[in-house]
């Protein structure tokens, strides 16, 4: 098993190594730029300023709600897609993939035309007393729209890959569908669920375009960290770099936390 693998590594041809190295540089250099150009001297001071802490706590609030909504709505959806025989599954799956490949500003335009005051269901929402544009709730909806697919797709993949004999065994012992889901299925896909949740949360934390277009920009209400980076870049590039470093550190921490889960999942699969 290790013989052919190590031979392949030793004989890696240049024609593959060069583009691969360029790919790594393409990704690494900009991030190294943030790390080296960040104003390390007064970094603590900058990140502790009221403006940044306000945007940070709003970002945590918005991304936390987006994750919660994604779990509450996305876990049932993933289960239905993987286990049920509802018609139009392919269509629903494409619909879920769409926000992942759509430019977020387009998502923002779509959200305005759908859920805005003058949008498709604007009047209905107003009757329910719900206004989304320019509100924190609107920022949560934008972040959920963009990030929920990560949870649904990850979880659906795990559920599809799961051997159904465990669930069938539970059923033969008299467990209902919901009991099986709660005590058999979900514990077995827990690593994937956690990985999907982490990706979802990180994507919600980084949401920019849909939030700016749909929810607007107001400190303390809709101005999350990425929006603040964008505005800071116009008058205080050093400040923007400092906040970018914070977001980069959070993203790196999420990936670091995920690493173990992913390796674990792959190892078990083999």
């Amino acid at each position: 098993m290790s013989g052919p693998a190590s031979r392949a590594t030793r004989g890696a041809p240049l024609v593959l190594v060069v583009p691969a190295a360029l790919a790594v540089l393409l990704l690494a250099v900009p991030l190294a730029g943030i790390v080296t150009r960040a104003p390390w001297g007064d970094l603590g001071e900058r990140l502790a300023s009221p403006r940044v802490t306000q945007a940070l706590s709003l970002s945590l609030l918005v991304s936390g709600w987006a994750l919660l909504l994604s779990l509450v709505l996305g876990v049932p959806l993933a289960w239905l897609l993987a286990r049920s025989r509802i018609p139009g599954k392919a269509l629903v799956r494409s619909l879920i993939l769409l926000p992942m490949v759509l430019p977020p500003t387009v998502a923002g335009v779509a959200l305005l035309q759908g859920f805005g005051r003058a949008g498709l269901v604007g009047d209905e929402l107003r009757l329910l007393g719900i206004t989304l544009p320019f509100t924190t709730a609107g920022a949560v909806v934008a972040a959920t729209f963009i990030s929920m697919p990560f949870l649904v797709i990850t979880l659906e993949g795990a559920l599809t890959g799961l051997d159904v004999q465990f669930e069938e065994a539970a059923a033969t012992m008299g467990a209902g569908t919901l009991q099986t889901l709660r005590y058999v299925t979900l514990p077995m896909v827990l690593p994937s669920l956690l990985a999907g949740a982490a990706l979802t949360w990180a994507r919600a934390l980084g949401e920019f375009g849909a939030t700016l277009t749909f929810a607007g920009n107001l400190p303390g209400v809709t101005q999350t960290l990425p929006l603040q980076v964008y505005l800071l870049m116009q008058e205080d590039p050093e400040g923007a770099t400092a906040v970018s470093l914070l977001l980069l550190a959070i993203a790196a921490a999420v990936l670091f936390g995920l690493r173990g889960r992913w390796l674990g999942a792959f190892a078990r699969r083999r």
Partner: peptide, 11 residues
């Protein structure tokens, strides 16, 4: 994992 990096680049 590729998509996760996109928002960082979009700034």
């Amino acid at each position: 994992s590729a998509l996760l990096v996109l928002p960082l680049a979009a700034c």
